[in-house]
Design a protein around this nucleic acid. Structure first.
Lengths: 127, 127
DNA sequence: CGATTGATATAGCAGACATATAACAAAGTG
DNA sequence: CACTTTGTTATATGTCTGCTATATCAATCG
């Protein structure tokens, strides 16, 4: 459970925690059933307030990715089935991002290649 | 020049303006050399403060996509060449987004398909 | 000249972000 | 049982962002 935070006011801290846990979940470095550190523990490790960590945990719980259990920390849930709602939101964000790339001069081929590379890298099980 | 704003505090207004102009640029509905409305004009049309529109325009100008000309409004610039810096930023954001999709249960195949579809739709010239 | 336009500055208000503290209830530990 | 741990809730404070409101300036166009 190694998280690195950048305090330079770029991306909110709770978002960085959320993003990195999402990355660990996507890469199966955190598998269903495994435990996450307690809110207070992780907050201490990251030298961050307990509410900042909690906010990230609550977001993950609301997304159905972890369960927050009283007195037991958080546990990783099973991979949810593909949901049309998530697929729609994902598609919308993806279109925004792709539009930005195209408008900035990236070629359709390069964008497609970057996407396939990202999927391949991230969906790889850990060594 | 039809822009629709959502005032429900989801995405900042200046960002929505920026996003929609980016979309028009990516889809070639705004081609190099063409004019954008003046800051004051667009602000009036959108019932929004002039600074809000200006912020979007300045972001586009800083990205090298339009030129802000005194007394002449803004003009769309030529499509910039692919830049490694943009490619890197794009790749990083794409990986974040893909990780979120994978963690949420979307399959690698579905994600790849959505990406190809987005590229195909957006890089299509207007009818 | 007079209107328009981008540029700049300042001020105010609401909300988000992060911190600090405190307290509570339920569960585990000794 | 007493004690600690843990998630949960609440309040307060300071800083930053988003948006608006106003005003002024300099350059340009008709």
């Amino acid at each position: 459970m190694i998280l690195l935070l950048d305090h330079s006011k770029g991306r909110p801290l709770y978002r960085q925690i959320y993003d990195q846990l999402i990355g660990a979940l996507a890469g199966r470095r955190l598998s269903p059933g495994s435990r996450l550190p307690t809110v207070r523990r992780l907050a201490a490790d990251l030298s961050v307030n307990l509410h900042t960590v909690r906010r990230a945990y609550v977001m993950l719980a609301e997304a159905g990715l972890i369960s927050l259990e009283r007195h037991n920390g958080a546990r990783v849930l099973a991979l949810p089935p593909p949901s049309p709602a998530l697929s729609d939101r994902f598609g919308a964000e993806l279109r925004r991002l792709v539009a930005e790339g195209l408008a900035g001069g990236l070629t359709p081929d390069l964008i497609t290649e970057l996407c396939q590379q990202a999927v391949a890298d991230l969906s790889q099980p850990p060594l």
